[in-house]
Nucleic acid binder design. Structure first.
Lengths: 185, 185
DNA sequence: GTCTATAAGATGATAGAC
DNA sequence: GTCTATCATCTTATAGAC
């Protein structure tokens, strides 16, 4: 297996992530991904024997990249800056119009997904809540850090969905601004 | 067409609503709905020539029922009571474990849905925001009623998704309680 | 309004050549 | 690691009998 940045596996994951963020897990097929990376669908099956394998690999990569970027963006930040960096990172999902957070999409569709994918998505959200909870606690910004962390994650995820549905990205920006004001400004 | 409460059309819509709230639009097939109501899939096609027709009818019914229930539950309520009634009505989606709001699901999947369905979902959210905005204004509960209304809808929708994903209904209840505290308590 | 039958295509997945 | 070829199944949708 090559480590080249454009290795087939990575390109398949890229194509899958872009599409699932827009249309959901069940709307994306192996053939569609194969076409997108100019291979045959048998090659996709070679790398991901079952669709659930692709789903798990995708969420795992998303999870890792998210926290790597979060760490990089908050190296010497105050608690308030950390929370703003978190909201800014969530927003990147909207850059491809109509797309939302990968895990927001899969979380909504949980009831119809393979169990291993559901577990991976749950792990992403638990890590999100733990991270924000630690920041709130560190900054003494909340009297109930875990509840407020959960609310912040829920609000930002809901704002992504609503922005996509209403086709108005400013919905997210205005929501994030008011969350900051109410919860930790 | 009969007006009996169990007419086939209504039973198909019931089955579709239950399933789409759990697994999403693309995971639900006509055959599955036909089996659920004990008819053949050709009968489903008779009532809904295309899947988009079913989607639009479903969202339209959901929209109408939601605002009928909201009106009934807030007949002589104060603004604060109205907002609590709204949050309580949203919560009913969670009664079937793992399910979320029909429009929350379809809003997330917008990028892969037929345009008429997308428009109907958008109409639901716009009506939600307008209703809450009017309540906030009426009760002088916000200095930016429209922005706060949008944030409240986003937060409650996100809380439904997160509660389903984490398989913990208390996530919604705790979020709703804290939204009330920050925004209008 | 529901049925049987079927079309025409997509889907996840596998076997085996290169 | 990618390919061709194929499978069994599912998908939305239609035609026509009852």
């Amino acid at each position: 297996m090559s480590n080249a940045p454009n290795a087939t596996v990575e390109r398949i994951l890229d194509a899958a992530e872009t599409r699932i963020k827009l249309t959901g897990y069940n709307a994306v097929s192996f053939r569609e991904l194969a076409d997108a990376v100019s291979v045959k669908s048998a090659s996709v099956d070679y790398h991901f024997p079952a669709k659930a394998d692709l789903g798990v690999a995708l969420v795992k990569r998303y999870h890792e990249r998210f926290f790597e970027a979060l760490a990089a963006n908050t190296a010497s930040a105050t608690p308030r800056q950390k929370l703003r960096a978190f909201a800014a990172l969530y927003r990147e999902a909207l850059n491809n119009n109509g797309a939302i957070c990968l895990c927001g999409m899969l979380g909504a569709e949980s009831g119809g997904l393979p169990r291993p994918v559901v577990r991976a998505v749950r792990g992403f959200f638990e890590a999100n809540i733990a991270w924000i909870g630690a920041v709130l606690k560190d900054g003494a910004l909340s009297d109930a850090p875990r509840d407020d962390a959960t609310l912040i994650v829920a609000s930002l995820q809901g704002a992504l969905m609503l922005a996509a549905s209403l086709d108005d990205l400013s919905v997210y920006d205005r929501a994030a601004k008011r969350i900051a004001r109410f919860a930790f400004a």
